[in-house]
Amino acid sequence: MKYLKYIALGVLFGVTLTKAEIISWYRIYEMFMFQSFHMYGVIGSAVVLGVGVNQYIKRTRMKSISGEIIHIPNKPFSIPRYLIGGTLFGLGWALTGACPGPMFILLGNGVWVISIAILSGLAGTYFYGLVRHKLPH
């Protein structure tokens, strides 16, 4: 089954974010209050190692499992899209205490009410699809 490896990787992701308490509303509140290094350590160490991963993949022209050279896509730069969209995301993140990944992982933790936040998130994404041509990007 070709999807088994994705499920396995998802399990690792879900276990990690649960065990390191990243899915906790309190950890996000604490992060935005600058009252603990924990979340900065998680994201910071992932990015520092991630820079190494990106450089290694690019410099060695590393091949993927299917034998093609791995292509890491660039994100075209503009200001309004990232600044306004990012700020709206941040406002929501501080309310729910969960970004999209942790929302799903909280479901696995039995926090059923987060399914309502996921449905709202789907509605928000759909609404963006409807109005995006009227928004500055």
Binding site: F89, L91, L95, G101, A117, S120, G121, Y128, R132
Partner: peptide
């Protein structure tokens, strides 16, 4: 309503507008 429904909506709208989330 504000924390869960409105918060979830902002996350879903903002992440697509910004073209990505934390990951």
């Amino acid at each position: 309503l504000i924390f869960i429904v409105f918060g979830g909506f902002l996350v879903g709208f903002g992440t697509r507008y910004a073209g990505g989330c934390t990951s």
